Simulated scan of single mutants.
Amino acid sequence: MNADIEKILAAPTVDAKTAGALLGMGESATYKALQRGDIPAIRIGSVYRVPSATLRRMLDLAPSKAA
C-alpha cells in the first residue's frame, strides 16, 4: 500500500477535498456526493469531515493498524 495513503488515513477524519482526491473525484463532484449522502460524512456547519474508516471501506482497504 502506498505509504502516503496510509499516512493520510491515519487521522480519524479527512477533509472533503482529500476524501475526493482519494476517491478519484473532482471537488464539485465530491461536494455533490457529500450533500446527497453518497459519501458518509460528519458535517459541522458548512464543513464536511469524512471518517478514515469509511474511506477504507469504500476503497476496500484493510483497517488501520492504529485502530
Rank of each mutant, 00 (worst) to 15 (best):
S28E: 14
D60E: 14
A19Q: 06
P63T: 02
I39F: 05
R56F: 05
Y48P: 01
P40R: 01
K32A: 13
V47T: 15
A62S: 11
M25L: 15
D4Q: 10
K65Y: 12
Q35N: 15
V14K: 02
T30F: 00
P63L: 05
S64R: 02
A66L: 08
A66T: 10
A53I: 00
G26M: 09
L59C: 13
P12N: 08
L55Y: 04
T13D: 06
L34K: 05
S52V: 09
V47P: 00
P40C: 01
K65N: 09
T18L: 03
G20D: 06
R49G: 00
N2R: 14
A53E: 12
N2F: 07
M25S: 04
A16G: 01
M25D: 09
A53S: 09
L9Y: 03
G37S: 05
A41E: 07
A16I: 02
K65F: 12
E27L: 03
A11W: 10
T30Y: 00
A21M: 08
Y48H: 15
A10Y: 10
P40S: 08
L9S: 08
A29N: 12
M58Q: 10
A53Q: 02
A19K: 06
R57P: 01
V50L: 07
K17L: 12
L59H: 06
I42Q: 11
S28Q: 11
L9A: 09
L34H: 04
S46K: 14
T30P: 02
